[in-house]
Design a protein around this nucleic acid. Structure first.
Lengths: 192, 192
DNA sequence: GGATCCATGTAACGGGTTACATGATTCG
DNA sequence: CGAATCATGTAACCCGTTACATGGATCC
């Protein structure tokens, strides 16, 4: 047994990559190889989150070691043998627990929420909504802070603060606003 | 001499944090302590980039070791002594070189550009504009990719792809669009 | 005959965070 | 009297990336 299993089967804490990979396994009907998983990532979650190619090969065996996935070797002629991975029940409940747990989301930028949302089909609706609201609120209050900074940044009279501060601040504002708007739209979607 | 000085005074490659700290030093008229620098960060670049508090104390001496900053100790009664740091000419040219160099910006998200722009007063205008354009274009082509993925994501007929993929994709689109719009506005600003 | 696809992994490095440590002074 | 402010640093850890390594089969 490799590290991190606390007691018999208490809560497991995984890295983001581990959760993501596990989440992907959880969404599949049939086992998959590391190689194919990488391709799947590229054509799906890729735009939110993407690990380095070797990371996948490191994480998969680790999941097996923790009893969250199983591995089966498939021999092939004409091409290299491959390892097929499949999620276990314990794996499923680990993903589920992660998806449902509220993140202490002081920093919404890291977009764990987005990753979770991507796996929404495996999650509890209510938990998702709760987290989406937290996400939106975090960005909203950030937005408020940025806006309050604006006059100070534009303050060219004092000579010190310059146009560049204002420029970058505007970016922060634009991003935050986009996030808030999107979150509201998403919440409406989920409500239907 | 600590590592990284290649030859006599060839180009120095620093970490992002090092550049950022150096950039801050470069914008100041008088030397500053690590403690005050942290506070300065909080009330300025903070919204774009923020290192952990201890990181500052690690980086500052390192800069001194590389000859990019100098340190002077100031004794104080009634409160702990402090170290004041000031940028050196070599430090200035290091920041300058960094600011002016084009980033191979496959990943615009890391927002090195934003940090650079924040230090715009110390940079070459043309170089800045060039990089801003690259930034915008990177996001624009990303935006195009996302948009092309949209129908596939919405494809609930096939049963496979679900609403959640579409939802997260929308976020990517919203962000990218915000970035492009902002970049265009910023370019207009810089043109005046 | 050279690039690309399949397929998996190890080792080293790197950048950064968290936790820990210390200690006087001032403010409420 | 306790909390916050000033002020700086070390050590351990963590997650992840880059570079390196291998090798047959197929496509152009």
């Amino acid at each position: 047994m490799t590290g991190r299993t606390i007691g018999a089967r208490t809560t497991v804490r995984l890295t983001l990559t581990e959760y993501a990979v596990l989440g992907l396994l959880g969404g599949l009907a049939r086992p998959i190889s590391g190689y194919d998983l990488r391709k799947l990532i590229e054509s799906s979650v890729g735009f939110i989150w993407q690990p380095s190619k070797t990371q996948v090969y490191v994480v998969l065996p680790r999941l097996v070691g923790m009893g969250l996935a199983t591995r089966r070797e498939v021999e092939q002629r004409d091409r290299p043998d491959k390892q097929l991975y499949r999620i276990t029940p314990r794996g499923r409940s680990a993903v589920r627990a992660w998806l449902d747990a509220d993140e202490d989301s002081s920093d919404p930028d890291r977009s764990i929420l987005l990753l979770k949302l991507f796996f929404g089909a495996q999650a509890d609706r209510q938990a998702l909504v709760r987290q989406l609201i937290a996400f939106r609120d975090a960005y909203a209050s950030r937005l408020a802070v940025y806006r309050s900074m604006r006059p100070a940044a534009a303050d060219t009279a004092a000579g010190a603060s310059d146009e560049f501060t204002a420029l970058t601040l505007n970016y922060g504002i634009a991003r935050a606003r986009a996030a808030v708007d999107w979150a509201n739209a998403a919440l409406k979607e989920l409500d239907r």
